[in-house]
């Protein structure tokens, strides 16, 4: 890891923080507000690759844990990890790693549909695979109930995947960081 990697990791931790104050968009039909922050997870993996992306998330979550109000709504501190949705935060690390790893594998043929599939797989499936069992365990409900409770957020996550995939393929052409 060289100086450039350190700087990029810090940059994406900061991008995550900046996206928290990005005004949430409310989807017209369902009425569930979506925040821009989980796009930052996809971008970290898709722009920096697996290791740097995952470390950017570790750094970001560390700053959240020590009490900086970097989550949407100015939330922060250890309490956010103790709440029922803590798994979705911890899942950021694995999610960025998987997106980064897949992006590296498909780097040479990275088109929009491929990037979209990667974002959906790593940013939605992997994230829920951590977050949903977490809720189920700490709230003592069945995983299926926890999943159906989270379904309302899926449309927002799909929108975010579409946007993130567009950004990832454009940045790949404009200023590629992953080199293979």
């Amino acid at each position: 890891m060289d100086t450039r990697d350190t700087v990029f990791i810090a940059l994406f931790a900061a991008i995550m923080a900046a996206l928290a104050v990005f005004p949430p968009i409310t989807l017209p039909v369902i009425g569930v507000p979506i925040t821009a922050q989980s796009m930052g997870v996809m971008l970290a993996g898709g722009v920096l690759g697996a290791w740097r992306g995952a470390l950017a998330m570790v750094l970001f979550l560390t700053l959240v844990a020590i009490g900086l109000p970097l989550l949407p709504g100015g939330r922060g501190g250890f309490g956010v990890f103790m709440g029922p949705t803590g798994g979705f935060l911890v899942g950021f690390v694995l999610s960025a790693f998987v997106i980064g790893w897949l992006t590296e594998q498909f780097w040479h043929s990275l088109s929009f549909p491929v990037a979209l599939a990667i974002c959906l797989g790593g940013g939605v499936v992997v994230l829920y695979a951590v977050g949903v069992p977490w809720i189920a365990t700490v709230a003592k409900i069945s995983p299926l109930t926890a999943l159906s409770g989270s379904l309302a957020f899926i449309p927002g996550d799909i929108v975010k995947s579409v946007i993130a995939a567009g950004v990832i393929v454009t940045v790949r052409r404009a200023y590629p960081i992953i080199t293979r």
Binding site: I9, A10, L11, A14, L59, F60, T62, L63
Partner: peptide, 9 residues
């Protein structure tokens, strides 16, 4: 990295 993040935000 920690200082840089605080600088970059």
């Amino acid at each position: 990295a920690i200082s840089l993040t605080l600088r970059f935000i």
